[in-house]
Design a protein around this nucleic acid. Structure first.
Lengths: 192, 192
DNA sequence: TCCATTCTGTACTGATAGGTAAGAAACGGT
DNA sequence: ACCGTTTCTTACCTATCAGTACAGAATGGA
């Protein structure tokens, strides 16, 4: 009961995502967020908590939506297919119209102390993604897809390194075609 | 003539570099800079101009000093040696003690509008580095080191992509050993 | 119809951001 | 010793930051 909220939580969260995506955690002022979301400051605080709390919700929303390829990649039949899907999906996300780069990578990389919690949050997310990929590659080795001599940790590290780099390249204005050519080269490092 | 300056310009510029390196352009407050540099605010403005101007001088100082491997790499005898020097040098820089990542990559990636000039500056620097690498690889093809079928633009893009990714990996706490293993995998993509 | 509850808009808070005015202090030249 | 010049210190400026107090408005239940 009580007065009903006049906006949809998820819909406005998506608008907040656009702001954080483009300007990062520090670069997104609360006035930018409220303006883009079309709600007042107290409404924002009541609905999502403070800026840090809103950012976490945005990151969840991002990983469940635009960046869902991360979650889906591990489901591919082979390790190679998982890696290729991860990288091709990354190209699509980081070159999306109006949003260059990846939120989880660029949202809070080198920051002031005020943004430390946001930075730590993204570090944890990236490490988790790397761990999931390494586990997927270890499974590929168990399945016989990869030789016993393959360093799966190094391979997983390489793939995530490339995906991080793709995000920066997109910020610099690289086209999807250019980045797919980069992925082609990266895939040629696949063992065997 | 006039009252002599009580500090050394280059020495204090190096202290400013440490602040920008760790916290980025936006995350480095002027009070952080003056405190680290040990000079007063008006002294900073008189000696280096405003924050943006100081940042440009810091970037120059960074590329001439800690990140000089970028400039040196092109001088290697072969294209392959240039690439390897670039990547091994990148590992050393981004895992340096007390400073995770690369200033030119992380200093201003996703920012508010106030940091737009700094962001544009770093984009231009990164593009220039990619261009120099591509030219070096084209020379390698003329020299017969690379086959006529090699896409030098894609290869240069791949190498810079990896170097960008190394910076993010270092921020996430990767060790030099882990990153050298990543470079090993990356070098295995070298054509031929 | 009245009430407890919840949301909304206005207006505000203290803190901090980048940047500067003004005068005292330290020089070289004469 | 005096002068023009440059740097240094103190104190201040306006704008903006994240966050909130408070009262009015809209609901469901009794």
């Amino acid at each position: 009961m009580g007065r009903p909220r006049e906006f949809d939580l998820d819909e406005r969260l998506d608008l907040a995502l656009r702001v954080f995506w483009r300007h990062g955690y520090e670069g997104a002022a609360l006035s930018d967020l409220t303006e883009a979301m079309g709600i007042s400051r107290p409404s924002l605080y009541a609905a999502y908590g403070n800026k840090e709390s809103l950012f976490r919700k945005v990151v969840d929303h991002y990983l469940a939506g635009p960046a869902s390829h991360l979650r889906d990649a591990a489901g591919e039949a082979t390790g190679r297919a998982a890696v290729e899907r991860l990288l091709r999906g990354a190209v699509a996300v980081v070159t999306a119209r109006d949003h260059r780069g990846c939120l989880v990578i660029q949202g809070a990389l080198a920051t002031g102390k005020q943004a430390d919690p946001a930075r730590a949050e993204l570090v944890a997310r990236r490490r988790a993604a790397t761990d999931r990929l390494r586990e997927r590659l270890e499974r590929a080795r168990v399945d016989g897809e990869l030789g016993a001599d393959v360093d799966t940790a190094a391979l997983a590290g390489f793939v995530t390194t490339v995906s991080y780099g793709l995000s920066v390249q997109a910020t610099d204005g690289a086209t999807p075609e250019e980045l797919h050519a980069v992925v082609d080269v990266a895939m040629s490092a696949w063992p065997g």
